[in-house]
């Protein structure tokens, strides 16, 4: 197993800090790694579910990364996918069952997300790409970082869609009534799933204009 006896690096060395901050921008799970799109479409019609989803994903990526990273030396490569999925799914189901028994109201809010979290490819993608080959502490940081990077995009998309689609933010009306009197209308198109794709496309446009090194060949 991993015993880091020789050079102990500080907990927040430059390399470790990068693990945390890269996914927020140049290595963003949604706009650069293309992971976790389905759930990004499903939960961003309003900010609130986007926020809840972001939080749940941060928690799950962190713990799944930690567990797989601890187990990584014992997992036979041929059945690694099954092992990873079983770990994620049991974690999520267990949490859901416990919530259902003790805080039913919370579980009613969250049960929608359970399926979405299990099949969220961010979790699987990070397990496969990072936790399988790294020590527990960097894996935790990677999990938190990617969860945050995912959450930021979700909240931006949710903000735009809720503001223009329903005229509200976090459920509160922000567009003044006077606007509606002048003939302003909520854009119903905004809350349809295809608009989420188009907004993410625009976010990618903005992000890549600022980071030209991300621009693809064609």
């Amino acid at each position: 197993m991993s015993t880091d006896k020789q050079e102990r690096e500080p907990l927040f060395s430059a390399k470790n800090r990068k693990l945390l901050t890269n996914p927020l921008n140049i290595d963003n799970p949604i706009t650069v790694q293309v992971l976790g799109i389905c759930s990004a479409l499903a939960v961003t019609a309003k900010i609130k579910p986007a926020f809840v989803m972001a939080l749940s994903v941060i928690v799950v990526t962190t713990f799944a990364n930690l567990i797989i990273s601890v187990m990584r030396n014992g997992i036979p490569p041929r059945i690694r996918i099954i092992v990873q999925l079983v770990v994620i799914a049991s974690l999520v189901i267990l949490v859901d069952q416990v919530l259902k028994a003790f805080v039913y109201d919370v579980s009613k809010q969250l049960s929608v997300f359970v399926g979405l979290i299990i099949t969220n490819c961010i979790i699987m993608g990070r397990l496969e790409a990072f936790a399988m080959g790294n020590k527990p502490w960097p894996s935790i940081l990677d999990g938190v970082g990617n969860g945050l990077g995912y959450g930021i995009i979700l909240i931006i998309v949710g903000f735009v869609r809720e503001l223009f689609g329903s005229g509200t933010i976090w459920g509160y009306h922000v567009i003044p009534e006077a606007f509606y009197d002048f003939g302003y209308k909520n854009n119903g198109f905004m809350i349809l799933p295809p608009m989420a794709l188009i907004i993410v496309g625009i976010i990618i446009w903005i992000q890549r204009s600022r980071n030209p090194e991300l621009i693809e060949e064609n």
Partner: peptide, 23 residues
Amino acid sequence: VPGPLRGLGITFIITGLMGIAFM
């Protein structure tokens, strides 16, 4: 296609448009 939109960006937008058509 504008440089920053190339690749992924334009694909997202096209998929959105295809989705609207399929509706």
